[in-house]
Structure formats: C-alpha cells, structure tokens
C-alpha cells in the first residue's frame, strides 16, 4: 500500500500523500515529543518532517520501509531543534532503587485508561530524549534492533544498553508518580 501511494504521489497525485499523514502522524508526533518534550514544538517538527519526506520522496529508493525512512527524518528534525540544549532530569531518582514490577502493574491497572495514558506519558517525559525514543521504537512501534539502529545511528549493543537503562528508569519514575497519586487521593 505504501509503495502504491508513493507512485501515485510521484505521478502527480498530491492528495495521495494524505494516506501517509493519516497512517504515520501519531507515531511521528509521539517520537518528536519524546525528543523535544514540548507539544507545540513536536507539532512543528512533525509537519517539517512530513514536508521534507514529501520533498525527498523521489530520492526514496524503497530499500527500507517507508516508516523507518520517515521516522529517521522525524528524529533528525527533532534533534536539530534540540540543538545543544542539554536535557537534565527534573528529579533525581536513584537508579539503585529496586523496581517491583508487579506492584506498579497492580497500581496502574487501578486507574482509568485516560489516567494510565497520562502517567505513562508523564513517566516517558522525564526520560532522556534518546531513552524515550528507543523505548517507543522498540515497544510501541515494535521495531527490531536493526531498524532502530537505522533511525538513531546507534549500535546494537548501545541500543540494548539504552533499553535496559530506560526501562528501569521509566518504572522508577512511574513508581514515584503513582506514589504521589495515591497520596493525593488519601
């Protein structure tokens, strides 16, 4: 379906590009926000990335999936916005703390779907840009290490290290956030 629409666009049917916007918009935006940590900047990044993808569509040789190619553009655009601005953690959380996964799982299932989404995104928002990006590509988009490597430029070993660190930190942040939630309810 992707290649058919690419051909349509290249043959002059501009409106066929809407298919890509509708299919990949949310994931592209999710990746952008995981890097820039700001919703309006993430929207700008997503729009710029789609425009760049449209402009370079003739150069896309379809040796990789369209999604991999597009997400690489999104990542590059988002990193450009981030520039040299250093991202620092809002809170210091000791990574020596142990994580009780079943406790977190239990606490989060008590919440409504809307609340779950809020806390999960709040947790991801407190991770380093690369950490939340790799987590989303691996678990949300279910990409393999090779595809993640194509997008981020990281080696397989590096991706595995990031995944391990990011996952632990995500649960530690989530645990803290849920603790506050329970306290505020009492």
């Amino acid at each position: 379906m992707d290649s058919e629409n690419i051909q349509k666009v290249l043959n002059g049917d501009v409106h066929a590009f809407r298919y890509f916007i509708e299919k990949y918009r949310d994931m592209a935006y999710s990746l952008a926000i995981s890097i820039v940590k700001n919703s309006s900047v993430a929207e700008e990044v997503t729009q710029d990335a789609f425009l760049k993808a449209y402009d370079s569509l003739g150069k896309f040789e379809q040796r990789s999936k369209f999604s991999t190619w597009l997400y690489k553009i999104v990542t590059n655009e988002a990193l450009k916005r981030l520039r040299k601005k250093e991202f620092k953690y809002n809170k210091e959380i000791s990574e020596l703390n142990t994580v009780d996964y079943s406790e977190i799982n239990h606490s989060i299932t008590e919440l409504t779907e809307q609340e779950q989404k809020y806390y999960i995104n709040k947790g991801l928002d407190q991770l380093l840009p690369n950490d939340s990006l790799v987590l989303k590509l691996f678990y949300l988009e279910e990409m393999n290490l090779k595809e993640i490597g194509e997008i981020t430029g990281f080696s397989h070993t590096n991706i595995k290290t990031i995944l391990h660190r990011a996952r632990k930190r995500f649960y530690l942040v989530l645990k803290e956030e849920l603790k506050h939630e329970i306290k505020s309810l009492l």
């Binding site: 809407r18 916007i21 509708e22 918009r25 949310d26 994931m27 935006y29 999710s30 926000i33 919703s39 993430a42 929207e43 997503t46 729009q47 989060i108 779907e113 779950q116 989404k117 999960i120 995104n121 991801l124 987590l135 989303k136 678990y139 949300l140 279910e142 996952r167 995500f170 989530l174």
Partner: peptide
C-alpha cells in the same frame, strides 16, 4: 512494558493539523 507503552501513543493537539 509493551502493554504500557502501547498506551503512550499521542496525537497532535491541533484539530486542523492534517
């Protein structure tokens, strides 16, 4: 983690984004 991250998909806030 996969189950939680699947719930993290976000949409652009602007209604006229497309």
């Amino acid at each position: 983690t996969r189950g939680l991250l699947k719930k993290s998909l976000q949409k652009p806030a602007s209604s006229d984004f497309d």
